[in-house]
Computed example of a mutant assay.
Amino acid sequence: MLFLLVCLPGVVLSQDVSFIALGDMHYDRLQDHNLDFVMSRPQDYKQILNEYPQYTAFYMPRFLQLIKKQTNAQPGVKAVVQLGDLVEGVAGSAALARQMNRGIVDMLYETGLPVPWVLVKGNHDVSNSPGQPEAWQEVIRPFIEGQIGKFIGHGMYTYQISPNTEFFVLDQFFSVDRNLPESEMVDFLENAFKGSTATYKFVLTHQPVIPVTQRCWHLLSGIRRPLKDTVLRESLLNILAKNKAIVLCAHLHEYSVLSRKTKSGNVVQVMINSVNRGLNTPLPNVIHREYKGEGWIDSDASWQPETSETRRKILREEKKHITDFQLMDLPGYALISVSDKTPQVTLKYFNGFAEVPYQTIDLSKLMLTGKLPF
């Protein structure tokens, strides 16, 4: 446990520990792209030409200053976590990829946080673009290691922010980077959990573990990468539940909280999005509280029809295990706090540039009961 000594001899009080969590940010500048290459990637062309460079220029510096303000204002903040897709990628050349990464590293340094950055590798960070994975190794990896004071290799590592609170950071297994066998993430977590003495465990991953939309862009889905071991995902979910590890993820540009039952208990997953499209983020018009499963595919049958039957099967099965769920379009940031006194893990989610939370959820209770408080 972590204790704070007070002036009375022999008296100790437990101390809350917190961290701030950010989702996708997609730092981008037009000068960091070979535009001929970008035009060959129609799925990225529109966003690069019309969205991310503008968001970066107008909103990201202010957002990072807000995060700095909150690290000082909120009690016990020990780190700021960013859950992948820190940059847009798709630079088009090795030199431009390094230039893009140096740009975001400079911005993070200039923010002047009083606590370390803990970064997760996203698919855009090592996208299928010349030199992108190497640029991550040459620029982003040394930045992370300087922040947390330890070697992280290719991006799968652990980091403690207190004796009782530990992060377990996964590599990305979505786009072609090192093309690791997916069994490595399960082996990593199983071994790291065995060696951990922390009560509070957080698995930091860019791709979600549990699907929250009809796209099924989650780890071990078997869609983008054939899954040879059909029980591997079940093993992963049971390892998470057994160790009471809370999953923090991003990737889908939505805010979501859910609970999923396994044979070993419930798994809680929180998804965060930090792509701010304005200074005043409106509250969501629609909050999805029903996990529709294969019903999502029926509502958007035009999206990748060649995989619809596979996704339908995945979501039909997944729906059987979801105990509670919410999903909304609400970019922002999260403050997650743990208490040794209760014990308790609390999520406060802030919309956009807000300084008071939009929503507060007791994640410990959600893990125990499988039910959200509304």
Rank of each mutant, 00 (worst) to 15 (best):
V115W: 15
P116E: 15
V118I: 15
V118W: 10
L119S: 08
G122S: 14
N123P: 08
H124A: 08
H124V: 13
H124N: 13
D125A: 15
V126Y: 05
S127K: 11
S127G: 05
S127V: 06
S129W: 04
P130V: 12
G131P: 05
P133A: 00
E134W: 06
E134L: 12
A135N: 03
A135E: 00
W136E: 00
W136P: 10
Q137G: 10
Q137N: 06
E138H: 04
E138Q: 15
V139G: 00
V139A: 02
V139F: 01
I140Q: 10
R141L: 00
R141E: 02
P142M: 04
P142L: 01
F143E: 03
I144W: 02
E145I: 07
G146Y: 01
G146E: 11
G146L: 01
G146N: 14
I148S: 05
G149E: 08
G149H: 07
K150L: 07
F151C: 12
F151T: 15
F151H: 14
I152S: 07
G153R: 03
H154N: 03
H154A: 09
G155L: 00
G155T: 09
G155H: 04
M156L: 00
M156K: 10
M156S: 13
Y157A: 09
Y157S: 09
Y157E: 08
Q160D: 11
Q160P: 06
I161V: 12
S162Y: 08
P163G: 06
P163H: 02
N164F: 03
N164W: 00
E166G: 10
F167M: 11
F168C: 09
F168G: 08
V169P: 12
V169L: 06
D171K: 09
F173I: 07
F173M: 09
S175H: 07
V176A: 14
D177H: 15
N179H: 06
L180K: 13
